[in-house]
């Protein structure tokens, strides 16, 4: 087990290194000039050139990349071009809000998705199944900003159950978490439904019935734990989906997280911030997958972590 974790951490580090290279190349190729952004529209060519020299933007690609990596290994993610602050400080100030929102969204999508999937499978080909599957189809296809604005209008503006925006109390979490988890809930309900249907046809479910167990116990103890296995691996991948969703959701709800930070940085070509946010989200995705793989053998004794 320990050997397995060490190997996976080693692999994760390699993946992250690869990501820094790819992101760096992409940003290097972007036609927008950060020096021009910093200097402002009225600045002379000479001023712009000075800023470029200061930031080391005139150095060859590999010199820039090596400098970036060297700093990164010392825990220095650089300074924001525009905000006059360390990137690590900017991220540290906003990361907790985003992480909490993501956890809330995972809980939401699991509760919604699994419940819908289980009910649909048990009412297979009946009215409840058909209506729930239409609902899940809608939740998969609807754009997040539409869902967000709709929820905001109905539950915050009209009914006044939840705050319109901002961050602080548990009530603030509800609408953003539902918006963020809505897409995943749609996917999970479909996966859980088909997984349940597969497991219901297994021999050991027949054995459970032959034991004289109640239907409730068969579903809870024998069917659901087996049906949930394929879902677990998906949760790790979800964190990647959330990273793109969070940019939209944080804008709609005025959530002070790294999604907003990323959005502002991209608009203004604030390369150190973009790199920093990318690294943090890549780490979150890699760790999420690792976590999912580590949780799986706890539930399924057949998976051996070698």
């Amino acid at each position: 087990m320990r050997g397995y974790i060490i190997r996976r951490l080693f692999e994760s580090a390699l993946i992250l290194l690869g990501i820094t290279l790819v992101t760096f190349i992409l940003l290097y190729l972007v036609p927008a000039d950060p020096a021009r952004q910093i200097a402002g529209r009225s600045a002379t060519a000479e001023t712009v050139q000075n800023i470029r020299d200061q930031l080391g933007l005139n150095d060859p690609f590999f010199v820039q990349y090596a400098r970036y990596l060297g700093n990164l290994f010392q825990g220095d993610m650089g300074r924001s071009y525009l905000q006059r602050a360390e990137v690590s400080e900017l991220i540290a100030a906003r990361l907790p809000a985003s992480l909490m929102l993501m956890v809330a969204a995972i809980v939401t999508e699991l509760i919604m998705g699994l419940t819908i999937g289980v009910v649909a499978a048990l009412r297979r080909n009946k009215f409840a199944d058909h209506s729930l599957m239409i609902f899940s189809f809608v939740s998969i296809s609807a754009p997040q900003f539409v869902i967000g604005i709709l929820l905001l209008y109905v539950f915050a503006v009209q009914l006044g159950w939840f705050p319109i925006g901002g961050y602080g109390t548990p009530a603030h979490f509800v609408l953003p978490a539902v918006t963020l988890g809505f897409l995943g809930a749609g996917w999970y309900s479909r996966m859980m439904r088909s997984s349940m249907i597969d497991v219901l046809a297994q021999d050991f479910v027949r054995t459970a019935r032959a034991k004289g167990l109640s239907k409730g116990r068969i579903i809870l103890r024998h069917v659901m734990p087996n049906a949930i296995l394929p879902i677990i691996a998906m949760i790790g991948i979800d964190i990647g989906l959330f990273m793109s969703g969070i940019v939209v959701v944080e804008s709609v709800f005025g959530w002070p997280g790294i999604g907003q930070l990323a959005w502002q940085a991209i608009q203004r070509v604030d390369i150190p911030v973009i790199m920093g946010v990318t690294m943090v989200s890549a780490t979150a995705i890699v760790m999420g997958n690792l976590l999912a793989d580590l949780v799986a053998p706890l539930i399924d004794p057949r998976i051996k972590t070698k």
């Binding site: 297994q202 032959a210 109640s214 024998h222 004794p301």
Partner: peptide, 27 residues
């Protein structure tokens, strides 16, 4: 169905062909 539950295993029990798949893998 509820009445049958008292019969199964209690009065009539059954074993099946496929021992490989007839037990719950997670228990």
């Amino acid at each position: 169905e509820a009445g049958y539950r008292d019969v199964r295993s209690n009065r009539v029990a059954m074993i099946f062909q496929e021992p490989m798949t007839s037990l719950n893998p997670l228990m």
